[in-house]
Every structure is written in C-alpha cells, then in structure tokens.
Amino acid sequence: MDIFTASLWGITGAAFIAALVKDKQKTFNSIKMARGMMKNMIGEIVGILFLIGLILTFIPPEVIKNILGESNLFISTVISALVGSITLIPAFVAFPLVGSFVDAGASIVPAVAFLTTLTMVGIVTFPLEKQEFGLKFAAIRNALSFVFALIIALTMGVIM
C-alpha cells in the first residue's frame, strides 16, 4: 500500500470516527448512502477489471514497447495514443516501461502520447462514465482528451 492509499484510509477512518461521535444516526445514514452508491457501480467496476485483464493479456508490455519504437514517428505516436486509450496499466508498470525506452534513445513524442492517453482517455471505463454523465458527454470528453494528448505529446517533443 503506497502512502497515498494509506492516508486515504487514515483520513476516512478519522472522519468516520469523528462523525460517529458527533451523531450516530446521521453517520449511519451516510453509510447507507455509500452502500447504495457502491451497489449501483460495483457491477460496472468489476466488469471493467475483467476487461482490463482481457486487454492486457492481448496487449502485453512487450507489444507496447514495439509500438513505441516504430520507426515512423507519426504512425508510432498515433498508435501509441490508441494503445494508451484502450489499456489501463498501473503507474509503476507504465512509467518504468516508458522510462527504459526513452533512456535507450527513443523519441519522447510517442512515449508522452501513450502516457497521457493512458490516464486521460478511458475506453475501458467508458461504460461507467456513460452511466454517470451520459453517452454524449463521455464520447466528447474522451475524443477531446485524445486530441489533447497528441498536442501535449507534440509540445513536449518541441520543448525537450
């Protein structure tokens, strides 16, 4: 457990106890509300986890490495951005992977495109986003983020 997750639990625990001391009934109501929300979303979330497992099985880190190193910069940037959009890799896997690659002298443009869409664009989490915000919103947000990821990647390429 990293320090951020640990402090999330710490803060939650402290807030919960403080609330309990202040007003038992009100706090129980809040738990009931939390449970209701969780019930609504847990099916989607577990589905997302299964989907992540499936996608990462078919697009393992080695494949991503090959794409990042594609010799045509334009093609590798766009495909890297696409791969970043459909995968959801934990940070401690993604950053060292990209890091080893940039260290080896590869262009940073596809690397940044991949890192940015990895977190900004979520094809896998789309069902959940749609449920909360509606189809139109989720589609536009993801499309916009994709375009911006490319812009951010190009800007990085120019600056660095």
Binding site: L8, A34, M37
Partner: peptide, 9 residues
C-alpha cells in the same frame, strides 16, 4: 465511498 457518504451527510 465511505468518504462520499460522509461528505453527503
């Protein structure tokens, strides 16, 4: 979710 519940109430 617990934090959200607390925030809400």
């Amino acid at each position: 979710f617990v934090l959200l519940g607390l925030l809400d109430v």
